[in-house]
Amino acid sequence: MVEAPLVTVQFTRNLQRHVACPAGTYGGATVAEVLGAYFADHPGVRHYVLDDQGGVRQHVTVFVGGSTIVDRARLSDAVGAGEEIYVMQALSGGT
């Protein structure tokens, strides 16, 4: 059995104003798997990042290895060992 690669998850400081979201390292082959593992440890963060249907919120952006993910509905983009997932806010959506 091959172990899932370990991936670091980090969040924008702007989200840390609202909810505790420390960086962490989790296993998974896709963004959905890694973030799912993170949210299992930090359930209060999930709804700040994902909408009611489980997709990425319209004004939130997820980067993997410096590129934005493509599948914002299912988060099926692959991640590799040693990569980092950054959850950022888009510049749109402010008031």
Partner: peptide, 22 residues
Amino acid sequence: FDHGHFGVKLHRRESDDAPWTE
């Protein structure tokens, strides 16, 4: 609240001097 980027959130406090909790 409408936090724009991070969505809708609700808070409650038990009395006027109590802290808010999500």
